[in-house]
Design a binder for these strands. Structure first.
Lengths: 156, 156
DNA sequence: TCCGTGAGTTGGAAAATCAAACCCTCCCCT
DNA sequence: AGGGGAGGGTTTGATTTTCCAACTCACGGA
């Protein structure tokens, strides 16, 4: 599904080629919650079974999920996130936070995630070097490879 | 594109219904970089023009982008992120960081973003309450609405 | 033996994507 | 006054995907 001729080498595009197809991130949501069985996924995501089967294959191939038997005889499988899959959870949480704020009014959330610190998790994306929350106006893009041209306020 | 019968009320699913279609997040990447004109988008994203036109309409309707004329006579338009759109940039940066680490080997990046602090931006998703980086094992899901059942290690 | 469950696969209609061509409005050049 | 762009799309028709319901297969239990 990678764009046939995306002229920009870009990790965002590459990441989306893996997890950007319909349902893929919802699969990840479910496996991170521990709901990794095929029928659970079908029910909880609402995806067609065949599409789901295709996605699962792709995510396993990409190293985001693993498929393991939780029972031989009868053979029964379960999908679980790999380390790489777990490391996508922050993306999910950030997306959830955006949705909570912009698509609901921030109250009456369908689901709350609690952090070990004892509080509700409200994810904040920060700069590793300085710790400050990331805002658009603090960023400057620096193309390192061919194919990049940027203009406007964020440009280098 | 919302899943016809996603049984779970979920801000992740809702957010993906807005920005989860093919190319939508790449459009956002471009408009955040200041490349908001139709032909720039076509070139930089590599999307078919008709699909792009559809996405742009959708993103404008959803309040993530605005369309403004940067020239009357000849009428010429430009798409720009709204506040809500800009607030998706952290999601993009987090996704980029994941891609940089897992899809490239962390070196030789096609593009580097600099933070005002003077360093390369490496986004870290943290808990707003305690400031700690978010890891899977520190999270507990608490369903607040019908439709949720969780099992396994992350379950409540 | 018949029923149910889990984990998919198959078949065919409906929708979305793709690529290329086309259109319209304006501007500029001569 | 005619011709040639450029920008911002729309149209057309072929190709892919999605969707959904039904089906399969392997077991285990009553």
């Amino acid at each position: 599904m990678a764009a046939p001729k995306d002229p920009r080498p870009c990790s965002i595009a590459d990441a989306l080629a893996i997890v950007g197809e319909k349902y893929s991130l919802l699969v990840l949501r479910e496996v991170c919650l521990g709901n990794g069985r095929f029928d659970q996924l079908v029910r909880n995501i609402g995806a067609p079974r065949d599409v789901l089967a295709t996605r699962l294959r792709r995510l396993v191939d990409a190293g985001v999920l693993t498929k393991r038997a939780y029972s031989e005889r009868p053979q029964r499988f379960e999908y679980r996130p790999t380390q790489a899959g777990l490391e996508l959870e922050p993306v999910l949480m950030t997306l959830k936070e955006w949705g909570d704020r912009h698509l609901r009014d921030g109250t009456d959330l369908p689901m709350v995630v609690e952090h070990t610190c004892g509080n509700e998790l409200i994810p904040v994306v920060t700069c590793r070097s300085c710790g400050a929350p990331v805002h658009h106006e603090d960023l400057t893009a620096h193309p390192q490879a061919e194919g990049w041209t940027v203009s406007g306020p964020t440009a280098a």
